[in-house]
C-alpha cells in the first residue's frame, strides 16, 4: 500500500536529524538521544527493505531485532558512563570534559 520510497525518505530525514543532533548538541544525554534517533532510522530502513525487497525471507526483521538489542545495550552502557563522568567532573557537557585534550 505504502510506496517503499516514502518509507525510505522518512528514514533518511530521521537519520539526518540525528546526525545534526549528534554534531550540534553539548549535553551527552542529548547526544545519546540523537544516536537513538539514527538507530531508529536505520531500523526503519532494515524493515522496509526486508518487507519490500525480500518477500520470502525474514533476515531483515531478525537483523532489526539485533539492532534493537545492541541499541539497548549501548544506551545502558553510555548512560552509565555519562553518570560516572558527571560524578567525577560535575558536568554532562561533552565540551567541558576535555581531560584528554592536549
Amino acid at each position: 500500500m505504502i510506496p517503499l520510497q516514502q518509507v525510505l525518505v522518512l528514514s533518511a530525514l530521521l537519520f539526518s536529524l540525528g546526525v545534526y543532533g549528534v554534531l550540534a548538541r553539548r549535553n551527552a544525554v542529548l547526544i545519546i538521544m540523537s544516536v537513538e534517533l539514527m538507530l531508529n532510522a536505520v531500523n526503519i530502513n532494515f524493515i522496509a527493505f526486508a518487507v519490500y525487497l525480500a518477500p520470502n525471507k525474514v533476515v531483515g526483521l531478525v537483523f532489526a531485532i539485533f539492532v534493537i538489542v545492541v541499541a539497548a545495550a549501548e544506551a545502558g552502557l553510555a548512560l552509565a558512563i555519562i553518570l560516572r563522568v558527571y560524578r567525577n567532573e560535575r558536568t554532562a557537557n561533552v565540551d567541558e570534559v576535555d581531560l584528554l585534550k592536549w
Binding site: I2, P3, L4, Q5, V51, Y52, L53, P55, V58, L61
Partner: peptide
C-alpha cells in the same frame, strides 16, 4: 528498482 514497489508479504 524501488519505484512502485508496494508491500505484499505478511510475515
Amino acid at each position: 528498482a524501488w519505484k512502485g514497489l508496494t508491500d505484499t508479504t505478511y510475515k
